[in-house]
């Protein structure tokens, strides 16, 4: 089985590149790297960039994951074709704009675009942002899925990810020593729900909460603590119809970890009792009340 190396980046489609870039710098505290008429990228850690805003007719929202060798790429593509998914190799131009050696992409069963890249660029210089938000790096991405059972086949069957825990039907997926890098969340439409950046500790998380208030950024969930990953989180509205979070602390898991079932919706996602304004989470709680979770997990 091929293994995913790293979560590398998210590419978001921006209608207003200037506004999105301002958010990345002023609110998220990321450092600007490249800027063209159709692209703006931002650094959060040792990676050259982890957040890209793209505009133009061909722009597609995507999540970028690293695989080690071109042959891994081929093996994954073979597996994806086996599931009947359409896959495509990136051109030299595509690779150049992403600063990678080789790449391919596919659409999952929901219609989310996933990019697989080989040898993405790391930065030789350390990340030094203008605002001291205490960002440590891109931590994870919450991805909507309209067909979670089939999409899980891709992640666990082809990409080698493992389910760390369940919150209702939502699956926390890991492929390194972090509790999760991807969360697949059942929803009525595809797309990235939230991009999550790790900050140093609880003090930075809470300091950012007050900073967001001063910046009049709408907080939609948190500050809180997730029962499954024990991460502290603070989720807020961002550009491109995507939410952003700061997260801190949290457990790491190893091979012995057994996936646990937590409740769907806010009660399974925060044990501080914080207010949740994210409709996907609130809907999930309502769905669960109408159907048994044991049936889904095969316990019955």
């Amino acid at each position: 089985m091929v293994e995913l190396e790293q979560l590398r980046y998210v590419r978001l489609v921006a209608t207003d590149l200037g506004r999105a870039a301002d958010f990345a710098e002023r609110v998220l505290g990321l450092g600007p790297i490249d800027r063209t008429r159709e692209l703006a990228t931002f650094r959060s850690d040792f990676r050259d960039y982890t957040l890209a805003f793209v505009s133009g007719d061909r722009a597609v929202q995507s999540v970028g994951l690293e695989v080690r060798y071109p042959r891994d790429l081929e093996a994954i593509l073979e597996g994806l074709r086996g599931l009947g998914l359409r896959v495509e190799k990136g051109s030299g131009e595509d690779c150049a704009s992403r600063k990678v050696k080789d790449m391919a992409w596919f659409m999952d069963f929901s219609g989310n675009c996933i990019e697989l890249v080989v040898r993405p660029l790391n930065s030789g210089w350390r990340y030094f942002p203008r605002r001291d938000a205490g960002v440590r790096g891109l931590a994870d991405v919450i991805l909507r899925s309209v067909d979670i059972e089939r999409d899980l086949l891709i992640w666990t069957g082809i990409l080698g990810a493992r389910v760390s825990d369940w919150a209702g039907e939502a699956a926390y997926l890991r492929f390194d020593d972090a509790h999760h890098r991807i969360v697949l969340l059942p929803a009525a439409r595809p797309g990235i729900l939230a991009v999550e950046y790790a900050v140093e500790d609880v003090n930075l998380l809470m300091r950012n909460w007050y900073t967001l208030r001063d910046l009049q950024v709408a907080v939609v969930h948190g500050p809180g603590r997730r029962p499954a990953s024990e991460q502290l989180f603070l989720t807020f509205a961002g550009p491109c119809d995507v939410l952003f979070s700061f997260v801190a602390e949290g457990i790491s898991v190893d091979e012995r970890h057994r996936a646990r079932q937590f409740p769907a919706g806010p009660s399974g996602l925060c044990n501080w009792g914080s207010e949740c304004k994210i409709s996907e989470f609130n809907d999930a709680a309502r769905v669960q009340n109408g159907r048994s979770i044991t049936a889904r997990t095969g316990v019955s």
């Binding site: 609880v202 003090n203 809470m206 809180g224 603590r225 044990n271 501080w272 009792g273 914080s274 207010e275």
Partner: peptide
Amino acid sequence: TGDDVMRSFNFLSERQVPMVFGPGR
């Protein structure tokens, strides 16, 4: 724990207890 502080912040806020400072450190 700090978690208890935050849980009480939400618990008491929901019950309209006037918050006069914090949560903070």
